[in-house]
């Protein structure tokens, strides 16, 4: 029951973040809107991975792969940025 309660709190938090994403699009943030939206999306993704996907319950080898995904995406971003900025 305790677990379901915490899941419910996480769901409420995710809905709050969804509202913040939509409300943020009304603010005159200009290009900052992209950063704002991505920051909130990252926070939502963290909550889902941490609580719903039970990331901390896995063994060491399993825990390595979400980090590897992050590293892989970072390398992808780095290579594309380098190519994009030097053209």
């Amino acid at each position: 029951m305790q677990g379901v309660k915490s899941d419910l709190f996480v769901f409420a938090g995710l809905l709050m973040l969804l509202i913040m994403t939509v409300v943020g699009s009304y603010w005159p943030l200009g290009e900052g809107l992209l950063i704002w939206s991505l920051a909130i999306s990252s926070l939502k993704a963290y909550l889902i991975i941490r609580f719903y996907m039970n990331f901390r319950a896995g063994d060491r080898a399993t825990k390595l792969f979400p980090y590897l995904a992050g590293v892989g995406l970072f390398i992808l971003l780095l290579l594309v940025s380098t190519d994009f900025l030097t053209r």
Partner: peptide
């Protein structure tokens, strides 16, 4: 469950990038 949550996470990023990034 892991797969389902992953699909949810993908949408969490797609929604603001496609729908909201132009501002309301």
């Amino acid at each position: 469950g892991l797969y389902w949550h992953f699909v949810d996470i993908v949408w969490v990023f797609l929604f603001p990038l496609l729908y909201l990034v132009g501002g309301s």
